[in-house]
Design a protein around this nucleic acid. Structure first.
Lengths: 210, 210
DNA sequence: CCGCTCTCTCTATCGGTGATAGAGGGACTC
DNA sequence: GAGTCCCTCTATCACCGATAGAGAGAGCGG
């Protein structure tokens, strides 16, 4: 099969899913494509461009269709859904959040921002507030998923980790974590609750201005 | 001078400031310390541990002293200041946010969380809400600074970037960016405005529960 | 049909990376 | 003086992103 940029990116995403971002090397990617690694440099200027292309591909899967909200839907609800779609897109691939934050000038991320900001503006929110709100939601979401996808510390790191001491030093943190996951709450619920904080604040900010 | 963990980390931070996170290699660090690179592995299990140690060092400079708020200070104001100190700590070093997000189990980050959560709990906010609020603030802040410190796209990437097309495709984004930095507003103001969104939402969340 | 050119892939190689194995020096202790 | 432990060394591994430059093959003008 002909080797083109599209096929390279598709295979790169598959490699990402299999081996994580650090596993996406030009050699392994080339091997999957039945080609030698320098060949890739004919299609891509460097690895950063590859990562950005992967980021766009990841976002494509969740944001292939993007539409503003129905006129009767509050923008808060719609924006909440947008953030959850963004999170879903990132969680759908190993190191998804790292990929997005390493991407330089992702077109699809810009498209998400454009849709979100213009939607808020159409609802009467001043441009400046709209930008603040959208940036806050986006950066919180990426920051949150980044933490969700952070690797569990390896054995070497845990060698000198004493849970007992940790609990004594940071009792509130430990209590909060253990309390949270008691009755069947999931990480999705945690994200939603945090997101509600942001969105409620956004509503205040928009209301105070609009 | 004797080589110990403390001196290694101090020099690693200096190297970080000079060359960024990707420039922190075991060889360059060893050279600065007047030593061969494998020597470092007697003091550190691996590079991830070094990065975590750097993260703790970065936070130490801003959070060496940590104290709960005066009793007459609203927790919102205090938490706002905490987030700004966190941002300042990250901005004080090249790739500071990347370092923090790459760190595994930073003690000082845990200490910040502990102080923030316990302070909120002391103000009568239920543990669960306190955790949600603190997590939201922390992850937003890291996500925000991560973007602030993102490298400007290199020449190869910009080769096929057409500002005119970009403006036509994402007019609201471009308008928002140009509008924002008109009259003397800075990136600090942008952070503060975004942070206000989060903190206002936190106040709602806490008020609804307390 | 020839020869040119453009597209794409190849081999060979560079400098750099984190990490390990194992030798050995020096100080301190019995 | 012998042994032991701490720390640093040399040598080396497998792997990484990237470049130079040769060459295969298709298409096309003559």
């Amino acid at each position: 099969m002909a080797l083109d940029r599209q096929r390279i990116v598709t295979e790169a995403v598959a490699l990402l899913d299999a081996d994580g971002l650090d596993g996406v090397t030009t050699r392994k990617l080339a091997a999957r494509l039945g080609v030698q690694s320098p060949t890739l440099y004919w299609h891509l200027p460097n690895k950063a461009a590859l990562v950005t292309a992967i980021a766009d591909a990841i976002l494509d899967q969740e944001f292939g269709d993007m539409s503003p909200p129905d006129t009767d839907q509050p923008w808060q609800v719609w924006l909440c859904g947008l953030a959850e779609r963004l999170r879903r897109a990132l969680l759908a691939h190993k190191d998804g959040a790292r990929v997005i934050s390493a991407a330089q000038l992702s077109r699809n991320m810009a498209a998400v921002s454009e849709l979100a900001m213009s939607t808020l503006v159409a609802r009467g929110i001043p441009l400046r507030q709209a930008r603040v709100i959208v940036l806050t939601v986006e950066r919180f979401t990426v920051g949150h998923v980044l933490e969700e996808q952070a690797p569990r510390p390896d054995a070497d790191t845990l060698k000198d980790f004493d849970m007992h001491t940790f609990t004594r030093q940071y009792p509130t943190v430990v209590a909060a974590v253990t309390e949270y996951f008691q009755p069947g709450r999931t990480v999705d619920d945690l994200f939603r609750e945090c997101l509600e904080v942001v969105i409620e604040g956004a509503a205040i900010k928009a209301g105070a201005a609009a």
